[in-house]
Design a protein around this nucleic acid. Sequence first.
DNA 1: AAAAAAATATGATTTAAATCATATTCAGGA
DNA 2: TCCTGAATATGATTTAAATCATATTTTTTT
Lengths: 150, 150
Amino acid sequence: MNCLYWKMLSKSSKYAIKAVLFLALHSSKENKVMVKDIAEPINVPQAYIAKLLQALVRDNIISSVRGSKGGFYLTSENLENSIMRIVKNIDGEDKLTACMLSMEKCHEERPCPLHDILSASRNTILTSLKNKTIRDLTLSVKSGSTFLPL
Amino acid sequence: MNCLYWKMLSKSSKYAIKAVLFLALHSSKENKVMVKDIAEPINVPQAYIAKLLQALVRDNIISSVRGSKGGFYLTSENLENSIMRIVKNIDGEDKLTACMLSMEKCHEERPCPLHDILSASRNTILTSLKNKTIRDLTLSVKSGSTFLPL
DNA sequence: AAAAAAATATGATTTAAATCATATTCAGGA
DNA sequence: TCCTGAATATGATTTAAATCATATTTTTTT
């Protein structure tokens, strides 16, 4: 059985998360990685991921230096960022908070018909995205309990 | 706090669910409702919802007759359809089953780094969408425990 | 300094979802 | 049987996300 594909995350956010995890595993201040060497292994168009990475740099989620010998990398501070922080940077906060039926006034006291189906699960997931850091996910890959693809 | 806005459902699916719930509450074989009288209260463009309703008719999820005195309505059989059935008709099945990071080979034995964050919640939600019928949700509105907007 | 190599900024193009428009078909009433 | 009012089928247009292209800036090396 597959993971659930939630458009909850845009393609851009997914790309960004993959790129950051890649950097977490393969870069350091002493060992920067160029866009082209990120784009290929995570299987994302180079010009596209470049744009996303630039946005993450602006927001201090990842680090970079330009010029020759330049590239992207993560500091140990960067590693402490939550997955949520990446998503908010790319998709914006609004995208994550609204009603399943897009009803303006849906809330606990006046739930839409689908509210109960989703509310608990939603909170579980949002909390995880907020709490899990890049470092956490990186460790889970290093320990062999989760996997990144070719 | 708001419901979670899951793009898990496309706008089209949301529109369709709203329309079907509207029909469940306001139509019967003896009391058909025309598109224009559905479009306005649920706040969806008429030509757009018309197209969606036509797809639902083709799939026997809702009922209709054309010509004067015609319109859309639900039979008691229609009421037993699951919410999932609507979603599958509009968005297709594939959209609901794939990895959060869009990784081809993500599964329980080889989970992606976000798998654990999502897997349980995903199953909970999918099961609910499969089990909840139109009738169930309609009853929850009638009983006053959930609400539909103006 | 000058040149080269990298990120950065900006904007153009493509693609898919959402929206709009219209001609056709079918049911009911005169 | 003909007219009217509705759904139906089909396709055009718009919009936003995804993708591509290129000129500019910054850093390192020579």
